[in-house]
């Protein structure tokens, strides 16, 4: 551990530094710099990877429950929809905006936005149902320009740019380790073919032969969503690196 010692200045150096401090204060009082963004009249420009509210695409969702399982704040609950499938609902009262759900989604059904300022009338309404997640949340925008922070040498400067910042981003789904389902214990397989039924992409196929069932995984088309692994009653399937 290093002990911090006060620098050993002479009286002259002390005076010089005091004068410097006062000079800086006077300069800034006369020609001030500003780093305050006057939200909501202007908005800070967020990076495209900003973790804001989520949009949900039910057509891509495979009801794998991955988002609900990984949510560290237990904000995501799966609700049964009319078509008998389960879709996520997010309680933004609990959400910590970590976007683990988005990263874990195997099919890219959850999309990020840069929206972060949604007002609710009460706590109950913070529970956002699946239908409300399809469209981005409604916010009132008063901003006519956006603000960027530029670091120039030692100082931080504010740059104001006219025009609205686009809050909806079109990012490709996050890259992840490519994995495919495969069978680690073929002898323990009961041949129930549940995996074939749950697979959204028809990757697992079975063919009934005379003395048994032949199971085939099409490695080219497997997305590694892990639905079959989760559903296998004997746990003979596992995700392996491609």
């Amino acid at each position: 551990m290093r002990k911090v010692v006060a620098p050993d200045y002479t009286v002259f150096e002390h005076v010089k530094r005091h004068v410097e401090a006062v000079k800086t204060a006077i300069r800034e009082a006369i020609i001030p710099e500003s780093v305050t963004c006057s939200y909501p009249k202007e908005r800070r420009k967020m990076p495209a990877s900003f973790r804001g509210y989520l949009i949900f695409d039910p057509d891509r969702c495979i009801s794998c429950f991955g988002c609900a399982f990984i949510c560290p704040a237990n904000a995501i609950r799966m609700k049964e929809a009319e078509d008998g499938r389960y879709y996520p609902t997010i309680d933004y009262g609990k959400c910590i905006f970590c976007h683990f759900c988005l990263d874990s989604c195997p099919e890219g059904a959850l999309k990020p936005t840069k929206i972060h300022d949604v007002a609710y009338r009460d706590l109950d309404r913070m529970l956002t149902l699946t239908e409300e997640m399809i469209e981005p949340p409604e916010i009132i925008r008063e901003d006519k320009r956006y603000v960027e922070y530029v670091i120039d040498g030692r100082d931080l400067h504010l740059r104001r740019v006219d025009g609205e910042d686009e809050l909806l981003v079109d990012l490709p789904p996050p890259s992840k380790v490519e994995r495919i389902a495969s069978c680690i214990d073929p002898e323990s397989c009961t041949g129930c073919r549940i995996c074939e039924e749950v697979c959204e992409h028809g990757v697992i196929r079975s063919s009934v032969e005379e003395d048994g069932v032949r199971m085939v995984i099409d490695s080219e088309r497997c997305t590694g969503c892990g639905l079959c692994v989760k559903e296998c009653s004997m746990r003979v399937l596992r995700l392996v690196r491609r």
């Binding site: 800034e28 001030p32 500003s34 305050t36 006057s38």
Partner: peptide
């Protein structure tokens, strides 16, 4: 207001 100016803020507004 003065301190805000020196500190790059806006102050009462």
């Amino acid at each position: 207001k003065l301190v805000a100016r020196i500190q790059w803020r806006i102050g009462p507004h």
